[in-house]
């Protein structure tokens, strides 16, 4: 147990690829682990598509419910064309995208602002929070006619509805995050006599970021939902309204096509936020390989 004079322990050994013990123990990883995700995913989508094709070509389901997938593909092609040439659909998609981004931005302002108030002030915590919980518990779509009456059939009523639906989870996550500061870290900051304002920016806010990003991801999805619901009810020329019109005309293939486009947009929106999360909250995921023992 003699300690060497030159103490340089725990320096990690040069990285050597570890032997695949799973194979040695006879537990081969499943096929889904071994093949690349993009292959398995697109393969699975193709299978679903084939199933769909089978169902509709055998006329097992009414085409008003499940249209011919080729019609949907054709409709998607039309859309791509229209978007390329800047037609009505391009405008519709542009409106919905713009509304969604604005609704998300407004939800961020509201969610972070009220979340801060609720976490940091007694008024917010005691008076504001129960009220906000009650409002949140209501099916918020009932407020849609009010937003339309107040803000008209244009973009702003959809932005308001989208923000209204999206901000609450962000508020809750922000408040929870700001209150989640590790006790030991708070003690450390106190022992270093770090001011309240500096503690907020150097400790509380970074501690809250993982929570805030969870809220931002939820909000990015809800903002699109809120905007499209607003368009269903209040028109305005967006893709939601186009979908509603197509549905009223029983043009199910177009409903599917628009739905797919909206899904892709919603996914991209979410992916952007998730990407920002990975970049900003880098310490949440294991950063590189664990060194030392």
């Amino acid at each position: 147990m003699t300690a060497p004079a030159d103490q340089r322990h725990e320096v990690p050994a040069p990285a050597a690829p570890p032997p695949d013990t799973r194979v040695a123990w006879g537990e081969r990883p499943s096929i889904w682990v071994r093949i690349p995700t993009w292959i398995s995913l697109s393969g699975f989508i193709l299978v679903l598509f084939a199933l769909w094709y089978l169902l509709s070509s055998l006329e097992l389901v009414s085409p008003f419910i499940l249209p011919d997938p080729m019609d949907v593909v054709a409709e998607l092609g039309n859309m791509a064309n229209a978007i390329g040439t800047g037609g009505l659909l391009a405008e519709a998609l542009g409106i919905t995208v713009l509304e969604s981004i604005l609704a998300f931005a407004a939800a961020v302002v509201l969610g972070l602002g009220f979340g801060f108030l609720v976490a940091e002030s007694d008024f917010g915590r005691i008076v504001l929070m129960p009220l906000l919980v009650a409002v949140n518990a209501a099916p918020k779509i009932v407020f849609a006619p009010i937003f339309i009456a107040a803000l008209g059939f244009g973009i702003s009523s959809k932005v308001a509805l989208g923000a209204f639906i999206a901000f609450f989870p962000l508020l809750v996550d922000t408040a929870a995050g700001l209150a989640s500061v590790d006790r030991d870290k708070a003690t450390l900051f106190r022992s270093l006599r770090i001011s309240r304002r500096k503690t907020f920016f150097k400790l509380q806010l970074p501690s809250a970021l993982p929570f805030i990003f969870a809220g931002l991801k939820t909000a990015s999805v809800l903002a699109v939902i809120g905007v499209v619901v607003g368009e269903f009810i209040g028109g305005g020329g967006g893709l939601g309204q186009q979908t509603k019109i197509a549905g009223d005309l029983l043009a199910t293939d177009r409903v599917y096509a628009y739905g797919i486009v909206l899904a892709v947009f919603g996914y991209l929106f979410y992916a952007v936020v998730a990407y920002a999360e990975r970049k900003i909250v880098f310490w949440q995921t294991p950063h590189g390989v664990q060194a030392g023992g």
Partner: peptide, 11 residues
């Protein structure tokens, strides 16, 4: 320049 997550408990 490393981050704490990359270090062992002792480090």
């Amino acid at each position: 320049e490393r981050y704490p997550n990359e270090l062992s408990g002792g480090m």
